[in-house]
Structure formats: structure tokens, C-alpha cells
Computed example of a mutant assay.
Amino acid sequence: MDGATYTQKRGQLLDYFDRTAVQAWTRLTSDAPVGRIRATVRAGRDAMRAQLLSLLPDDLRGARVLDAGCGTGALALEAARRGAEVVAIDLSPTLVGLARQRAAGEDGADRVTFRVGDMLSPSLGTFDHAVAMDSLIHYRPDDVARALGALAPRVRSSIAFTFAPWTPALGAMHAVGRLFPRSDRAPAVEPVRDAALRHRLASEPALAGWRAGGGGRISTGFYISQALELRR
């Protein structure tokens, strides 16, 4: 998939995570002390990572897993510790460099291949499972469905991903955020209604034969995200 919306937003995300927010993101994903707001985000991300991992088999020996939008690589390492061969890819060279640095010497690191690039690239090959944690929260339902449709032909069993669930509070925050100067804000999160997303996924031709299954919402202070699993 290479639609204008996806490509445009991909460029914004690269600029933000590889330049604007590098120091904040490095600290957030470490054990370093953070303020109250960021602490809720850290706790929420930890909980969501655990939830997505719970959707994967406990024994991943012989399986190939894609960590789509791997960030600093925590999920990739956990999957590798279960025996998976993991391809962990992110747009940001800086974050991938940090992921490699943190993985060095860790159990399972030898089963993780870190890559810089687009998570939808066919050159990555085929997988048994794909996980996209908070990689699609900046996209509208049409773009989410098309992105998953582009990935699905190369995944044999399951795709687990997250989206930003619409709530009155998140909807209001999204609207207010648009009032700030573009230079002062992160790429916008797109609040999505669960029913609308499921309907759009069901109508995506490339996802024929896939069904939406379990997941769950994590809400901890300033972090809110919802998981959804697609299975063949």
C-alpha cells in the first residue's frame, strides 16, 4: 500500500520519532525516573505489550514473527525468548539503533533481526504472526484496513495490532490538538470507533478469510489503546 495519506503520515512519524522526540522516547522506554504523566504512559505501554504477547502462542519455536514498528525492541525480545525468529522493523534509524544497543547480550537477541524501513515492505518475507503495537494509531480506519490488507498476504496465522479507541475525552483532546501550531505537536492520534473499524476491516477485499477476534483496552492515565486480533 502506498496511498498519499499513508505515505504522508509515514514521513511525519519518521521526522517525529527520529528527530523531535528521540530523547523523550529514549527515557520513556527505559527504567529512568519520569514524571507522573509519562509514568502513566510507560505503565500503559507495558500493559499493552503484555496483552499483545498474550495473543501469541507461549511456544514460538519454529515460528517467524514480524514486530511492525518495533520502537526500542522490547516486544521483539520477548517473542524471541519464546523461541521465535523475529524481524523487528521501524522507520526510525535512531530507535532501531537504540533497540540493537539494548538487545545486545540479552537472552533471545540472536533470534532478532533489526531493520530500518517500512513495515509493509514485501522484501521482509512471510511470517506466522505479525504484531503492530501502536504503529497504526495515527491512521484513519481506511488507511488501517488498507495497511493490514497489504500485510495479510504475507502472514499465515494472526495479526495483532492496536488502535486509539474513540472516547469523548480522547475525541476532545484530538480536536483541541489540531488548534496548536503544527511545529508544536506530535503526529495526531486518530480516535477510531471499534464498530466502525471492524466494519471497515470486514469490507477490505485483501482481508477476505480473516476474522476479527479478541483483544482488549488498556487505559492508564494519559495512555489509552485498544488491541484487536485478526486470524485466518
Rank of each mutant, 00 (worst) to 15 (best):
R146D: 14
P122R: 09
D90F: 08
A79M: 11
T20I: 14
I89Y: 00
G105W: 00
R49M: 09
L75T: 14
L60K: 08
L55S: 10
S92D: 06
R36K: 12
D67F: 11
D31G: 14
H129C: 00
L120E: 10
V87N: 02
R82N: 05
G117K: 07
L55W: 13
E106W: 01
L148H: 08
D142I: 13
R156C: 01
G69F: 07
A32T: 07
A103S: 15
A88S: 05
A32C: 06
A88Y: 02
V65I: 15
D118F: 10
G117R: 07
A43F: 01
L28K: 08
T26G: 03
S54V: 09
S92R: 02
G73C: 10
G44F: 12
L95F: 02
G44D: 09
H138T: 09
S123R: 13
T29C: 08
D59P: 01
T26H: 11
A47L: 13
S121Q: 07
A47M: 11
A80H: 03
V116A: 03
G108E: 13
H138Q: 15
I37K: 14
A130W: 04
V65W: 08
V155M: 09
L151F: 10
R115D: 05
F127R: 06
V155T: 05
C70Q: 02
L95D: 01
G83A: 11
A132H: 00
L124N: 04
W25A: 05
L136I: 12
H138N: 15
G105E: 02
F127S: 03
F114V: 07
P122H: 12
R27C: 06
M119C: 09
D143N: 13
G125N: 10
P122G: 06
M48K: 07
A43V: 04
A104F: 06
H138D: 12
P57A: 03
D143T: 14
G97L: 04
T26R: 14
D118S: 08
A99L: 10
G149Y: 07
T26C: 05
R102S: 09
A88P: 01
R82V: 12
L124W: 08
R140N: 13
G73P: 06
G97M: 04
V41G: 00
G71D: 12
A152R: 05
G62W: 11
L28H: 09
L95R: 02
A99H: 09
H129D: 06
A32P: 07
H129A: 03
L56R: 01
G69M: 07
F114L: 04
R100K: 14
G69V: 06
